[in-house]
Nucleic acid binder design. Sequence first.
DNA 1: CACCAGGCAAGTA
DNA 2: TACTTGCATGGT
Length: 220
Amino acid sequence: MTTMMDVYDRLYSHYGPQQWWPGETALEIMVGAILVQNTAWKNVEKAITNLKEQGLLDPQALHACHLEELAETIRSAGYYRLKAKRLKNLITFLIEEFDGDLDQMFATDTTTLREQLLAINGIGPETADSILLYAANKRVFVVDTYTARVLKRHGWIWAEADYYQIQDHFVSELPQEIELYNEYHALLVSVGHHHCRKTPKCEECPLADLLPGGQIVDFE
DNA sequence: CACCAGGCAAGTA
DNA sequence: TACTTGCATGGT
């Protein structure tokens, strides 16, 4: 029987420590979490560089920036008009509820803050949890597309499992430690980038021998 | 050329 | 509730 800890050990042995999130400040991590929605990280990097050059990686500056100017600055991240609005929604929340103070925001009870984040238009479960784990340093397990694919293709969860069922699968099996949650999600993205894509390359995957019958359980 | 990327919300029935 | 569609740039 394969446990989720076995999977972690294999991924860690193969890929090593991932040093996530790839961002300097808490604000940069939150901005990145929105910009990376259904988008390659490479496209987000240029957008964040542009924001830094424009001096926009700051709560007050973002709040003061016009929507159209913000949209042009983050153009390379794709869905740029949509994401400009989503960034504005998050910043407005930060300014109005916490006076633009991230430490004050992160001092909020985790369950309450999660509900508040989910109430913001443009922030769903993965974005909220990414912010909580990687920006706020809270003990929250992040689930993304790759995570679902890895578990479903290996038959470790039923194909119809939703976000919260997948999240519970990890939380109920693993030691509940922030560092483990942090590293595990990053490792799942890494194996996703290399192998567990829509057209998977399972041959050299560190989890290849765990496939049921050596076959991919196709659920898409 | 087609396909995909570290989602989410709104519309339809 | 359960599908479907729009959003968009940039790499393979």
